[in-house]
Design a protein around this nucleic acid. Structure first.
Lengths: 268, 268
DNA sequence: CAGTGGTCTAGACCACTGG
DNA sequence: CAGTGGTCTAGACCACTGC
């Protein structure tokens, strides 16, 4: 993969008067700044696993040399990757591959906060894997994961408790192929967040997610697992998590009790 | 307000050997980069209303001259203000004061999307002001708005409908002082979003907000206003909107029907 | 065409980290 | 102390907008 410093604008260079290629019918081909190309190259290295989760990538100076651009251009590329949470900058130390296996951000995609006290006061979550089995993708699951109906998927059900109170009931669907070898024993044996397991054992990093939230009433089975009475309103949180290249890799349909917690969202 | 290019780092300049002021007990005073100071100055001009909502601020070159810094430093300041949605950059045209009164982002803080079709297909929202009266802040309202219990507030109730289906029931609390003169007639007369009214008629720009979301069952009155049957689960969305300087300016407790819509959230 | 924001460079210096 | 990211500058050129 090489960098093209000249054809960034697809308009024919006006310095080349011969065979003037008129731009075809006002269709302006995409202009791609250098730093965007660098950003792509770094993304590709991340995707290819050239650098491990949590480890440092080469310094800005070194990358500038490798790509034959100025340090400022590399900096701008890294800046964007850092604001997208793919990289983490640490002054004086280096730039690191973002990971879900960090103390600071135990649950990067979880927006549920306790009504009283802070995240620390309720202690760590208790994870209970209820089920994990192979299945075939329904039409809806296939659509969200960009698979075909009937494709092999893993289906996982678990309950998260805070301070011994069951609070989240999750149904998770994963494409079977990238997670070959995952079973209920490995899930139960792993001590950290599930996304950290995906990362360390399957090299699959979830970099962003989209959630759709609705208010629902839990059915009998759901209420039993959450140990609530009947007719309890629950937050239905349907999450699709994406790895690099906007590839959907996980569908997670969760039910949150919101009597002792709330979903918090910042609007910019 | 002047810019201090020298005392950004509070460590005594090592070039001044006389009367060496030992840094008091390892307390490192805050380092503030130049561009952050510029950012503050621009913020203050925004807050003071030096530039109107939706109008262009001076060009980067002009601001660089005014503040006696390089254009690159102004650029970095504006970049951050733009990512915080206080300013909007438009290549070739200028940099503009962000506003709620734009076609593109009719509802900047509303995350509700129709289950079928897109935002356009359901047409514009119908706004029905149910009530608007002066009241005294309860302890809870006062806390959220950083007022004292019993302070004067305006309380507004309204219903938003999409395609003639009542979908959102809102209870809004505003501090009375900054919104003196607002009444139900003016609310009903204004054709645009309420935040645009706050902006154009009271010079009050909401720049960010925080929401707490829970699942609840509507009571009889609420269900009547939303024209649902009883025992319908609803999204409770409690929003505090902030103007400049993290000053809370509005408390909005809304109930969303989520049978035809869902709350959408992007996690980075 | 002038004026705006957007990109890219090269170099200097600062702040932070760890050996 | 060397190495890293963070700030700041000055200048050149490009892309986009509107007159």
């Amino acid at each position: 993969m090489s960098i093209d410093k000249t054809s960034r604008s697809a308009a024919a260079r006006s310095a080349a008067p011969a065979e003037a290629t008129t731009p075809p019918l006002g269709r302006t081909p995409a202009f791609s700044p250098l730093y965007q190309q660098i950003k792509s190259l770094i993304s590709q290295s991340l995707q290819a696993g050239e650098w491990k989760s949590g480890s440092a990538i080469p310094s800005e100076t070194e990358l500038a040399g490798r790509y034959k651009v100025s340090q400022g251009t590399v900096r701008k590329a890294i800046d964007e990757l850092a604001t997208e949470n793919l990289l983490i900058r640490r002054q004086g130390k280096g730039t690191f591959v973002a990971t879900h296996a960090e103390q600071q951000v135990q649950y990067r995609f979880l927006r549920l906060f306790p009504e009283q006290g802070d995240l620390d006061s309720q202690g760590p979550a208790q994870r209970q894997i209820v089920d994990c089995h192979k299945a075939r993708a329904s039409a809806q699951v296939a659509r969200k994961l960009q698979l075909r109906t009937g494709d092999a998927v893993l289906q996982i059900q678990r309950v998260l408790s805070f301070a011994d109170i069951p609070t989240i009931l999750e149904n998770i669907w994963l494409p079977a192929a990238p997670f070959k070898g995952l079973d209920i024993e490995r899930l139960r044996a792993y001590p950290g967040p599930m996304y950290a397991l995906f990362e360390s054992e399957f090299g699959m990093r979830m970099v962003r997610a989209q959630e759709e939230i609705r208010a629902v009433l839990g059915d009998n089975e759901q209420c039993k697992l959450l140990q609530t009475g009947p007719y309890v309103p629950l937050l239905s949180v349907e999450r699709v998590a994406y790895t690099y290249n906007d590839m959907p890799m996980e569908l997670r349909h969760a039910l949150y009790r919101t009597d002792r917690h709330h979903y918090r969202n910042e609007l910019g």
